[in-house]
Design a protein around this nucleic acid. Structure first.
Lengths: 331, 331
DNA sequence: GTGAAAGCGCTAACAC
DNA sequence: GTGTTAGCGCTTTCAC
């Protein structure tokens, strides 16, 4: 049974109110009392109960962070950014790993409400209709990362998917590629169509004779395996623009299996810049999202929301092209 | 301001005690009251306050999980295992990312105590003397993952490092290698010397003419770069046994830069089996730790501790050799 | 400058 | 079967 404020008060020969004042750093405490209280706190190794404080103050100093899948290498950086920002403002993060299960995501939302968290961040890939219903009526500060709700009712932190798609296509176009294959993610996600839009925009802007083929992947390694089927009927050179790095890595593997050389025969470019991307062989050229900043900004946005500020619309972070070894000139 | 139990009671025309009974699923409630209370709960969208409950019940249903560095690919799997186990028992995880800072690790221990978590899991690489002092006197159920305290005062979940080192060396020995290079981790960590012990044991058991050279790395990618210096003076074939996968990947990169072929000229084997290992090229042969199980078991151990069971000593999980493409016959 | 006391939302005796 | 009440540990008026 931990020490309570009453124990400290007794030990210091004061009332609990005085101990509380010391805890709050109130100036209305005599020097003598202050010292005795501090001594008592130290001797008893007293630690005020966060639970009791939360009940009194109606705030827990706790933020909920729901991620689709913590073992997806896209998320740990976001978590780190969020955690750093939270720590800076004296808050803790309750991490909820939805393990790719939308129902579990919603169950966690409920749980976090019961825990009276000061805010919730949802870093989820795809949002279902049930999410929308639940989230748009969420009774607590809420920020979405990497996904948005129609109408912009809920503040969201996003990357510039359209610009990223454009940059990816422009890069391979510049290398002289005229045949592009886009392995997309699941069509329901908004980022998927935005990236594709970007690719199309870059092609349109190039006013050269360029073909684009789109095959739908799943956003994971498996989706990249579509490259096998593509390689069966397309003769190099061509460039594969993957929806994300996992897809790109899957595609590279399929290509290696077939003995097709990257980038000599086929160029591959990804999206996200997960840690893995720097360590494939060749290194993966990709469009980097600033994942750390996304997590950080999400927490800061919660703070702004809590201070009564009306944060409206999406906050879009810039992306940038990182050229490694997986893209090369078409020949 | 959220709805309270009193609001529900008023709405249902009963006392808060009755509402509480309904919440607890007590049988001592009349049908009529039960229905009215349930209706009121639904209409008001009432959610009991976890904070108030925690204050009453003296337990928070919350576990602290301190991780050295969530962006180190070794940890997300542990987190997932812990999170799954916690969820199964209705608990939440407060994730604390120490960001490689031992002081921050200790600060988090304090924080978690204030938050009155039901237990703490520390998944940290290296433990300093300050850790030892703090941890051995920790006033809350505590489990270490991937590190142990001398004397076994604190229950720890570990992998079979010695056996893993043995398996790694045995594997390359079997491939005909007679010159082994071990790139270790920082000498202070116990796992480092255990793995090296294993390597030595395998060599001793082989009773062949085998040389072993040990160079100290840092357990990260940079440590693997020591392979560059090794390659400068050693002629292939030889085998590099890395302390962990990150080190192995760093070594492979150094080798590629020098135009040395893996595994044709030099074999490389890692330890951990991080997600990355399957996607290097060639794939990394490694000793897999069951990271998910470690996280899971740690949470279960907390539960046992809380139920009053005296868990003593280390729980050592088996490892297993995973052969991919980075090791091959010596010739 | 300090203490008494109320109350945050809930549960668990204890009465009736 | 139901209500009253005390109390979990803290903060904050309100007196003095």
């Amino acid at each position: 049974m931990p020490i309570t404020i009453t124990d400290v008060a007794a030990r210091a020969g004061v009332s609990s109110a005085t101990v509380s004042r010391v805890l709050q750093g109130s100036p209305r405490v005599s020097r003598a009392a202050l010292e005795r209280v501090q001594a008592a706190i130290a001797e008893l190794e007293y630690r005020p109960s966060g639970v009791a404080r939360s009940l009194r103050s109606q705030q827990t100093g706790t933020l909920g962070l729901i991620v689709t899948n913590i073992t997806n290498p896209f998320y740990p950086e976001i978590v780190r950014g969020a955690e750093d920002a939270a720590q800076r403002m004296g808050a803790s993060i309750i991490l909820c790993n939805a393990a790719e299960d939308p129902e579990r995501e919603i169950a966690y939302l409920d749980l976090l409400l019961e825990r009276r968290v000061d805010g919730v961040i949802v870093a989820a890939g795809g949002l279902t209709q049930r999410h929308e219903d639940f989230l748009s009526a969420f009774p607590s500060p809420l920020v979405l990362v990497n996904a948005a709700l129609p109408g912009g009712q809920v503040p969201a932190v996003l990357s510039d998917d359209e610009g990223g798609g454009r940059a990816a296509a422009a890069h391979v176009l510049e290398l002289g590629h005229t045949r592009l294959v886009h392995i997309s993610g699941p069509a329901v996600r908004e980022a998927v169509s935005l990236r594709l839009d970007g690719v199309r925009a870059a092609i349109a802007a190039a006013d050269a004779d360029v073909t684009l083929e789109v095959v739908e992947g799943d956003g994971y390694l498996a989706g990249g395996l579509a490259a096998r089927e593509v390689a069966g009927r397309l003769r190099p050179p061509y460039a594969i623009i993957a929806h994300n790095d996992l897809t790109a890595v899957g595609a590279m593997h399929a290509l290696f299996d077939l003995g097709i050389r990257v980038p000599d025969e086929v160029s591959v470019i990804g999206f996200d810049d997960i840690a893995l991307a720097a360590f494939t062989n060749p290194g993966l050229t990709t469009i980097a999202q600033d994942k750390y900043a996304m997590g950080h900004l999400a927490v800061e946005t919660i703070a702004r929301l809590r201070s009564g500020e009306a944060v409206k619309g999406d906050q879009v972070l810039p992306v940038r092209l990182i050229v490694r070894g997986s893209t090369g000139p078409a020949h």
